[in-house]
Amino acid sequence: MDSTPHGAAVTAAGFGVKGPRGWAFRNIDFTAGPGSLIAVQGPSGSGRTCLLLALTGRMKSAAGTAEVGGLPLPKKKAAVRSVTALAHVPGVAELDPALTVGEHLRERALLQGRFGGSLRALLRPRQERRAGARALVDAALSAAGLDLETLPKGIRTSVRDLERLEALRLSVALALIGGPRLLAVDDTDLKLSDDERAAAWKMLHGLAAAGTTVLAVCSEPPEGDADVVLVRTGSQSDPSSPEGAPDAPTATPDVPDARDTTGTTGTTAGKGGEAGESAEGRETAETGQTGEGSRSGPSGSDRTGSTDSTPAGAPATDGHDDEEGAADALAETGRA
């Protein structure tokens, strides 16, 4: 097997996003090679999430240049979306507290099977497709460090019953099912204890070491970690404003009301919670809009609310048929 890192190199020069009320962030400059761990540090409201969305092709930039895997932004936003995935982004890619772990996994794998593979893969025997989906889910759970056996009710555990670190691991696992070259994680250390924060960074370090480039928004990056590429937001001020005044945290989403499909949920197969007994039960996909009260979607985040999206591995198009396609995927299985 080829052990070459498949992660995407990321560069930015004078990169910025501007909205109706001013700059969400500006003058971002950094270079990170494939398989890097990039920590985006800054206070809430400093444009951290806007930067995450812009670098994954979900928000249009207004200044400077950036490239992800050699794909320029904003010119190749659709292509960038196809090789990136979001995890733990409030309002964009978050978990539904009313659904179980198994339902989330099953929906995500179904969507990946529908959009993430080739037409030839869709024509494979059903048993072979099930085995492939199960392998993807198992690999993603292992990489995220989520052991289903340790959960209160195993795969039938509701998201609302997960600890914060467990919910973070699940969100990361769902994003990894698509095999992204760049994984973007928001609010990485939000309300985590010191031990949980250390465990979260250990997980992200492991993903980067395995070859996936990781972009993680945080309040405090690991101290003294030379392997982390640190990017700070909120440190630049608008020359037209009083010196030291922070940039405005709002920006206009590129496409209103679009939802990213790598982390949001809303429709679930009726028997998804019983999927732990079969390989098919662990094939899941995510689509739609989340319910209220998700523990992975705190208020006060510097999110914009709606973005462009294309599941990782999907054909690079600028169309906005994610939700309709997801529904088609579920309908074709006969288990919508």
Rank of each mutant, 00 (worst) to 15 (best):
Thr100Phe: 01
Val101Tyr: 02
His104Cys: 05
His104Pro: 03
His104Ile: 03
Leu105Val: 06
Leu105Phe: 06
Arg106Cys: 09
Arg108Gly: 07
Arg108Asn: 12
Arg108Cys: 06
Arg108Tyr: 05
Arg108Trp: 07
Ala109Arg: 13
Ala109Asp: 01
Leu111Phe: 13
Leu111Val: 14
Gln112His: 14
Gly113Tyr: 10
Arg114Lys: 09
Gly116Val: 01
Gly117Thr: 06
Ser118Tyr: 06
Leu119Glu: 12
Leu119Trp: 12
Leu119Asp: 08
Leu119Ile: 12
Arg120Tyr: 07
Ala121Asp: 15
Ala121Leu: 07
Leu123Pro: 10
Arg124Thr: 10
Pro125Trp: 02
Pro125Asp: 02
Pro125Thr: 02
Gln127Ala: 15
Glu128Leu: 08
Arg130Ile: 12
Gly132Asp: 11
Arg134Leu: 14
Arg134Phe: 09
Val137Ala: 13
Val137Met: 14
Ala140Ile: 06
Ala140Phe: 04
Ser142Val: 11
Ser142Glu: 11
Ser142Arg: 15
Ala143Asp: 12
Ala144Asp: 01
Asp147Met: 04
Glu149Pro: 00
Leu151Ser: 00
Leu151His: 03
Lys153Tyr: 02
Lys153Gly: 00
Ser158Glu: 09
Val159Asp: 03
Val159Thr: 09
Arg160Leu: 01
Arg160Asp: 00
Leu162Gln: 08
Leu162Arg: 07
Leu162His: 06
Glu166Met: 06
Glu166Leu: 08
Ala167Met: 11
Ala167Asn: 09
Leu168Ala: 05
Leu168Asn: 04
